Structure formats: structure tokens, C-alpha cells
Simulated scan of single mutants.
Amino acid sequence: MEQSLMNRKPPWLRAKIPGGAAYNEIRHLVHSYNLHTVCESALCPNIGECWSRKTATFMILGDRCTRSCRFCAVTTAKPLPINQEEPKNVALAIKAMGLKYAVITSVARDDLKDGGAEAWAQTIKEVRALNPQTKIEVLIPDFRGNRESLMKVLDAKPDVLNHNIETVPRLQKRVRPQARYERSLEVLKQSAEQGFPTKTGLMLGIGETKEEIESTLLDLYHIGVKILTLGQYLRPSPNHLPVDRWVSPEEFKSWKEFGLRLGFSHVESGPLVRSSYHADEPWQSG
């Protein structure tokens, strides 16, 4: 499809405009604790909805990423030193927000020997100590395949381990050049083998085929992934990969049905779905 047409978002991609008392309250709280969120740094289209519901996804280890994924709006740059107060501040912010379900992610920190795993573990422990009833979902990088780093995070006992596969095998190098499909599968497999509810997500509309989506979902199911998110790729800037196609709500619905038939326990699938979108829903009955 011509790119000029692809620049015109269809009506189903209209998101809530940020604003209102609750939104401003969360914005003030996040900034007062000197924290970062993926909501802001990754230009998430759901920031208006989520912050108005008084939820946010915290992003630790700074806001500068050592990787240059071609779909992501987070800044690629030399990272600043780790803020030693960050784990405690995340815990305090979660308490102030009264979150019963917290999602924490991070930039990739390939400059650190452990990829930031120690900071991850400390953050989980601080959140748990101050918010013992809060479930914690961690959306982690691949730690360059370092099992010791992954185990350091898992040993801190998050409630859900999330790591995004992002796209199908053929597009991995183009979409996220410093990552590897098999390496991400291994992270997810190790998490599932350790008994953690394991989650991942894909972007659609970046050049994949139907057959490739089916094959990837089969790969994920067979290694033990239980929770799946599927959403529309949106181009953050002209410097990022172009959108290949707009995926209709009807197609997203069919992928949800396909995933549930395969055996995933929960599937969030829709144009504006992102990794942490309605992340608490699989646990509301519990």
C-alpha cells in the first residue's frame, strides 16, 4: 500500500486524548519521584486512557537504551549512571497510586555486565516489601541470553514474567537488530520451565504474513507461554520502519480466537493493545 495512505490512521486507531485531573495527578506523581514510564518514553497511544485510570508502566534503569530497535520511540544513547534511589521510588509511587497490579519494564542496558539484573531484583524486592498485596509483572529485556541474569530476576519472585518477541523470525534482524528470535524464545522457555506465568507480545502490520503469525504463535505456545498480546505497529517517526498495513479489528478478533484455540490462557488482541494494556485482567478473578 502507498505510504501516503498508510500515514492516514483508520478511525479505530483513535485513542483517548491525554488530560483531566487523574491524568495530571499521575503525571505529577511520576515526575515527583524522578521516575520514567514507557507510557511517555515509548509514546504509547493509551497513555490518556491508562493514566486516567490511575495506572502506569514504570521504566527502570533510566530512559536511554543501548539498543536501536527500528520500531521503538525510546531514545538510543549512552546511558546515565543508575539512580540508586530508583527501586525505592518505584515502590513508593506504586503505594501512592494504590496499585493492586504493577507493571515494570526497562531499557536494555548492554553496557552493564549483568544487563541491569541486580537493579531489577532490587526493584522487585522493594515493591514487594512496601506493597505486599500488589502483583508484579516484569517486562524484561533478553539480557543477551545470560541465564544468570535472568535467574537473578526470577529469584526475586515476580508474579508474571513478560518478554516481547515483537515480530516473526524473518523480520527480527530488520525490526530489532541487536536481538535474536531464538534467544527470546529461550528467555520465555526458561521462565515457563521455572513455573512462572509467562507472557509475550507481537506487533502486527510491520510486514509479516498470516502463515508467519500462525507459526510464531505455535512456537510460543509450545514453549509454555500462557499470556499473549497482539497490537498494531504504529510508526513513531519518519526515522522508524514504515507501517506495512492497518490490521482491522476483525482480524485482531480472529487472532484472539486462534490463540485461545491453541491453548493460551489469555489473549489481548486489538489495534491499540500494548504489552501492559489491561495487564491485570487475567488475575481479576483471583
Rank of each mutant, 00 (worst) to 15 (best):
Q3T: 12
S4H: 12
N7R: 13
R8G: 04
K9W: 11
R14L: 14
A15V: 02
K16N: 04
K16M: 15
G19D: 09
A22K: 14
Y23R: 09
Y23F: 15
E25S: 15
I26F: 07
I26C: 14
R27E: 15
V30L: 14
H31N: 14
Y33I: 04
Y33A: 07
T37D: 05
V38Q: 00
V38L: 10
C39G: 05
E40K: 09
E40M: 06
L43Y: 12
C44R: 08
N46H: 06
C50M: 08
S52P: 03
R53W: 10
R53E: 15
K54N: 13
T55L: 11
M59E: 04
I60Y: 03
D63C: 12
D63H: 13
R67E: 08
S68E: 12
C69N: 07
C72R: 03
P79R: 08
L80D: 14
P81V: 06
I82D: 05
E85W: 08
E85F: 09
K88N: 09
N89P: 04
V90I: 15
I94N: 01
I94E: 02
K95I: 02
A96F: 00
G98S: 06
G98Y: 11
K100E: 13
K100P: 00
A102S: 13
V103Q: 01
V103R: 01
I104P: 01
I104R: 00
V107I: 10
L112H: 00
L112S: 03
D114E: 10
G116S: 07
A117H: 04
I124W: 00
E126S: 13
R128A: 10
R128M: 08
A129T: 10
L139P: 01
L139K: 02
I140C: 00
D142H: 02
N146S: 11
N146Q: 15
S149Q: 03
V153G: 01
L154Y: 05
L154V: 05
L161Q: 01
H163M: 06
H163G: 05
E166D: 13
E166F: 05
E166K: 06
Q172P: 03
K173F: 05
R176W: 01
A179P: 01
R180E: 13
R183H: 08
R183V: 11
L185V: 05
E186M: 13
V187E: 00
L188I: 08
K189H: 11
S191V: 02
A192V: 05
G195Q: 06
K199F: 03
T200C: 03
T200W: 00
L204W: 03
E208F: 11
K210L: 15
E211F: 02
E214Q: 14
S215A: 15
D219A: 13
Y221K: 13
I223W: 04
V225M: 05
L228V: 07
G231Y: 10
Y233I: 07
R235N: 11
P236T: 06
P236E: 03
S237R: 08
P242H: 08
E251I: 13
S254E: 15
R261Y: 10
R261D: 14
H266Q: 09
P271Y: 06
L272H: 11
S275Y: 08
S275W: 02
D280T: 11
E281T: 14
E281M: 08
E281R: 13
W283L: 11
